[in-house]
Simulated assay, not measured.
Amino acid sequence: MKQAEAPPNAKWSGPSHAGVKAPDPILLADPSRRFAATAKRLDDLAAGHPMEAWLRFMAGLARAQHAVATTLGPAGTLGADAVALATEARLPPLAADGHRRDASWRDGLMLLLDRIDVAGLPPPALDAMEALRRGDDATLDRLADNFLRGRVTTADAGAAVFVAAALQVYFTCSAARLNVDELRLLEERGLCPCCGSPPVAGVITASGTTPGTRYLYCSMCSTAWNHVRAVCITCGGTRHLSLQSIEGDSGLVKAETCADCHTYSKLFFQVHDMQSDPFADDLASLGLDLLVAEAGFARHAPNPLLLSGEDGDR
């Protein structure tokens, strides 16, 4: 693993004349494209990858998510007053751990299970899928609540990936119904302004009106929001940051590590691959996670599709 010098101060240092446009603070995802793009990228990355079989399974899961998002489109709807009340208080209007979910999320879960290609899946995965199909509304909502509150038990770990995938579709479709002009960034900038979830990764843009901008991508509702560069997204520290990467790689992915709080987050640099997708590339770069973890850094938040259960509550 190679280490770069600490990145420069993150404040915008380019031209400051009137012709320079500030980056959009919040970008809502398009449910008709979000999961299809991830599936395609995972298929592309899987070829010859050490984890090819697993990445192809995840690509199939993303295709099932796309089917749900574009046919059923499970979502909750918030009134303008509720959104205004939340944003004025600098709270996420779709707070993932407190939002009263519409029942359509369960319909989305059932459709998701029907659209997954089960060929080659191990028996525990098939058993988990069957248990979800048999589960009543209360059981499914309990599983969702426990997942969103970080309380996935060992007994529920097999079902967690499917519940997480269904919730991603639900929250992505729900966020897409919001008016981006009515939203505001949270005071805790490392959390999603729509649902309050942590990001899966950050992207450093290479195109648009403000190339070089960092956007964080929500692990749950897929919303992207601007976050100043060279600031730790966990503790807000700036003095002891460095960029870590795997020796000899393409430069697409780096881990921004913070020696103050001993956490890290991933950054994808579009300049090295304009086809990169933060959701897909995060899964395909687990080797970097292992190396950074061995160096003593903890990930700022887990990828929701990789949560493992523990005995008892987390």
Rank of each mutant, 00 (worst) to 15 (best):
F162I: 02
I233A: 04
V163E: 08
T213W: 08
V203A: 03
V271T: 03
G60T: 08
A82W: 13
K40D: 11
L94E: 13
G14M: 02
T205K: 03
A18V: 08
R151I: 00
E182H: 11
G312I: 05
D137F: 00
W54K: 15
I26V: 11
G236A: 08
G236H: 02
R133V: 05
R184F: 03
L113W: 04
M129W: 01
D24Q: 15
D277R: 04
H272F: 06
R101A: 08
D30F: 11
L111G: 07
I246R: 12
L148W: 05
M58G: 00
L148T: 04
V200A: 11
A159N: 04
R239Y: 10
C195N: 07
F279M: 06
D282T: 07
E256I: 10
R33T: 13
S16K: 12
D273Y: 09
A47D: 10
S207V: 07
A201H: 01
R34Y: 09
H272A: 02
F268R: 01
A155M: 00
L113A: 09
D43N: 11
L178C: 04
R34I: 01
H300N: 14
M110W: 08
T234S: 13
D313V: 03
D43F: 13
V118R: 14
G73N: 10
A298D: 06
P7M: 13
E294P: 01
T234K: 08
Q270N: 14
G73E: 00
V163P: 07
L290E: 00
H66M: 00
S245D: 05
A176R: 04
A82Y: 09
P8R: 15
D97N: 11
D181E: 15
R229V: 06
F269T: 06
L191I: 09
G251V: 08
T209M: 12
A53C: 05
C235P: 06
A138F: 00
T263R: 14
P193C: 09
R34A: 15
C218V: 14
I116T: 04
A224D: 00
E294Y: 03
P92I: 00
A230E: 07
L241S: 10
M129S: 07
E187P: 02
T154D: 00
G98L: 08
P199M: 05
E310R: 13
D249Y: 05
A128R: 07
A284C: 08
A18Y: 14
V169N: 08
R151M: 00
I233G: 05
F269A: 01
H17Y: 06
T209I: 12
V228K: 03
V83A: 09
D30R: 07
V292K: 02
K254S: 12
P193F: 05
C194S: 15
L45F: 13
Y170K: 06
V118G: 02
H262V: 01
A284M: 08
G73A: 10
L183I: 05
D289N: 04
Q168K: 04
G287N: 13
G212A: 03
R314E: 01
S222V: 02
D114F: 09
A160R: 06
V253S: 05
R239A: 15
V180G: 09
A80K: 15
L306Q: 12
A175L: 05
